[in-house]
Write a protein that binds this DNA or RNA. Sequence first.
RNA 1: GGCCGGGUGGCAGAGUGGCUAUGCAGCGGACUGCAAAUCCGCGUACGUCGGUUCAAUUCCGGCCUCGGCCUCCA
Length: 459
Amino acid sequence: MPLVLYNTLTRKKDVFEPLAPGHVGMYVCGPTVYDRAHIGNARPVIVFDVLYRLLRTLYPSVRYVRNITDVDDKINQRAKDSGEPISVITERTTRLFHEDIGALNCLAPDVEPRATAHIGQMVTMIERLIAKGHAYEADGHVLFAVGSMGDYGMLSRRSKDEMIAGARVEVAPYKRDAGDFVLWKPSSDDLPGWNSPWGRGRPGWHIECSAMSLQHLGETFDIHGGGQDLVFPHHENEIAQSTCANGVPFARYWLHNGWLMVEGEKMSKSLGNFFTVRDLLDQAPGEAIRLAMLSTHYHQPFDWTADALRQAKSTLDRLYTALRGAAEVDCNGYDEAAPLEVQAALEDDLNTPLAISHLHELASALNKATGLEDKARKKGALLASGRVLGILLTDPEAWFKAGGATGGLADAEIEAMIAARTEARKAKNFAESDRLRNALQDHGIILEDGAAGTTWKRG
RNA sequence: GGCCGGGUGGCAGAGUGGCUAUGCAGCGGACUGCAAAUCCGCGUACGUCGGUUCAAUUCCGGCCUCGGCCUCCA
């Protein structure tokens, strides 16, 4: 099956073919580092991590670039409010971002460029745009002239007239066209700034991605991703800058993940439904958060609910239960590639919900498997499938016993009570046996009596 | 107002012109000292009104309805 991806540029599923055979270049818009990542930030990171993992199973060479935006007015504001130097804020936030998404089993990109390390490239690109008549200097700013580009608006499919008619913000008087956007703006002494042909200043929002993708992936590359809200204006403007500056097509496939809601409402601080990844990691394992995100197709809006998280956790319990039952089975040689149906689901525009349904089927098959060979085959298939999705990466025992450090009974205490219960059961003292089990249950410990003895897990 | 995406069983959520996923919850059974886990079985859903068709939840059109975006929010 060929890989097909829904391309915002064409508004349909397109068969994916890399520009250079065997090599894929992908750019995804990364975080602005002024505050901890919230779950809305986490969605594209997880979605494109799955795509990255899938691409790596299909192509020998994949170059994944995800930027860090470390120059931005929100960062400036944060520094002003807190009194902390900007570099302290951006470095700390970057480190926390890595921690948070690492806990969600997201692989590091191949390149993680920082905007402040590419100011020179941005200035060069702006100069080229001015030279080609696509940008102009006005009132200390450099602006991109949307009127200079014939098919501006091709990604978001809106005409310039519409944009002007719909403009809600007062148009700065120095703009030639209401749709013109800032490439470079002046900085006062108290703001970060770099010397440029237009005086000391800082870049506009969009130019960094054009400059960094050029630097690390070239003029034309395969995939550009991000949240749906970035389609306009951010990605539209990236296309304008890059195609006008380079004179060749920019990204070929544009992928956008849907918006994230919380309990049916838009997430916002004022509604009190605003969660950081860190908040959620205190409530559930990262794998459960990740799986919850993947339980809806990436293109759909995702409604984050307590129930969705609970369901994801219970799905993982079920899958890990199957793996735990086959702990002794050596599946070496059977776990290299995900089975066809899982691969096919993902190759069909990253249909993760369908892929997950196949994991359930594999778990059932593993539970029912009798022969060693059959078990090894199913276990290997389940593990390989999990790997593409970035789940089932933990040892099953560790999965079920996790959470002990944060309070409650220690493993040794639990083991001791189980031993006492086993003695009671041998003596047919079921009253005592049940008392012990209930006592453990009160601490969230669930016992399972099997042929090979009693196992336990933290519920 | 413009553009875009939805409305599927109690819930979540795929998908398909006829064979109607998957999971959770529920019910019945097997297993178990009792449980848990697992296994077996059960529930026949597709907003609405028309059209096309031998056949539509799936295609087309109208309507209702929900949501997103419309200059810097992922």
